[in-house]
């Protein structure tokens, strides 16, 4: 699992696959490897609580990073911060910048157009990437982002090409190309697809990989979450199947899921050359520590 030598990681996957939990575990593992790590969520203008924040004991996140563990900061990307940063960077000082930042109409417009809203998120990310630590070097060596549902994730990775089609010249185009230099470079950035060892999620994750490739986002690999442990040898399994056919008991579903998981993993391996990191199914209230341990190991060595 090539993780620690890249700057940006987008954690993607359909709802219900445990994406946010995996994001939190990846962030903790990266920090434990000694990397100055920033874990981000994309701030939702509709409000509500933060799912990622709750895993670290924060109901709400803000744009200012908070330290949640040694080497680990937590924050969200917030479009208006990106808008302001962008306007400050392109406008000469004086009255022009003042009237831009004061104009409610302009702010409203930038937030009401989804692409410009995402441009704000994108620019805020760029600001974080270019931030310098007090002692030199990047403020955060590894930045991990919990990406929202598939459609939104692809909207963000596809944003530069979409907007460059509309606005091929000028400062927005320049900022987008600067972002692309990071995001589309497999040495610097990777998208990870979190999925489950079941038929439909595997199909959907393969579709998501195609979508990411279409937006020129490099893929780091797949994270096969909640993989059930198979404790039976072949004889035991045959005896058990014969027994269960006559007498249904609890545990039957577990057997079905073990078979499905194996089938799904085989199909995934046959369909992609990308690294696949398998995470165990954990029957506890807080699975983050166990997943962190597994990912800490995977980051240290190869995995497939």
């Amino acid at each position: 699992m090539r993780f620690l030598d890249r700057r940006i990681h987008l954690i993607t996957g359909k709802g219900g696959v445990g994406r946010t939990t995996v994001t939190a575990a990846l962030a903790k593992a990266s920090a434990r490897h000694g990397r100055r790590t920033l874990v981000l969520e994309i701030g939702d203008p509709e409000g509500g609580y933060s799912q990622l924040g709750r895993l670290f004991g924060h109901d709400q996140l803000s744009e200012t990073p908070v330290r949640v563990a040694p080497n680990l900061d937590l924050a969200h990307l917030w479009a208006p911060i990106g808008h302001e940063g962008f306007l400050r960077s392109v406008l000469p000082g004086g009255p022009l910048i003042g009237s831009a930042l004061k104009s409610k109409a302009l702010r409203k417009f930038l937030n009401a157009a989804p692409s410009f809203h995402e441009m704000g998120v994108f620019y805020h990310l760029l600001m974080r990437l270019e931030e310098v630590a007090p002692g030199g070097g990047p403020a955060h060596e590894v930045i991990i982002i919990d990406m929202p549902a598939t459609g939104h994730a692809l909207a963000l990775t596809g944003l530069p090409d979409l907007l460059l089609g509309l606005i091929p010249r000028g400062p927005i185009a320049k900022a987008l190309r600067r972002g692309q230099a990071f995001m589309n470079d497999p040495a610097k950035a990777a998208a990870w697809v979190v999925t489950l060892p079941e038929k439909l999620p595997v199909t959907e994750s393969l579709e998501l990989l195609e979508g990411l490739a279409a937006t020129r986002m490099p893929a780091g690999g797949l994270i096969l979450n909640r993989f059930p442990h198979d404790p039976f040898d072949a004889d035991e399994r045959a005896a058990l199947d014969a027994f269960m056919a006559r007498q249904p008991v609890h545990g039957g579903l577990a057997l079905k899921r073990i078979d499905q998981a194996q089938g799904a993993a085989d199909r995934l391996r046959a369909s992609t050359e990308l690294p696949i990191v398998t995470l165990p199914e954990v029957w506890v209230d807080d699975p983050v520590p166990v997943l962190e341990q597994a990912l800490h190991g995977a980051m240290a060595g190869g995995a497939r």
């Binding site: 035991e236 005896a239 058990l240 027994f243 008991v249 609890h250 545990g251 577990a254």
Partner: peptide
């Protein structure tokens, strides 16, 4: 084989 299989099934059944 069935005896040991049922033994191993117990925790899975418990969780389920």
């Amino acid at each position: 084989a069935l005896a040991s299989a049922l033994h191993r099934l117990a925790p899975l059944a418990q969780a389920e």
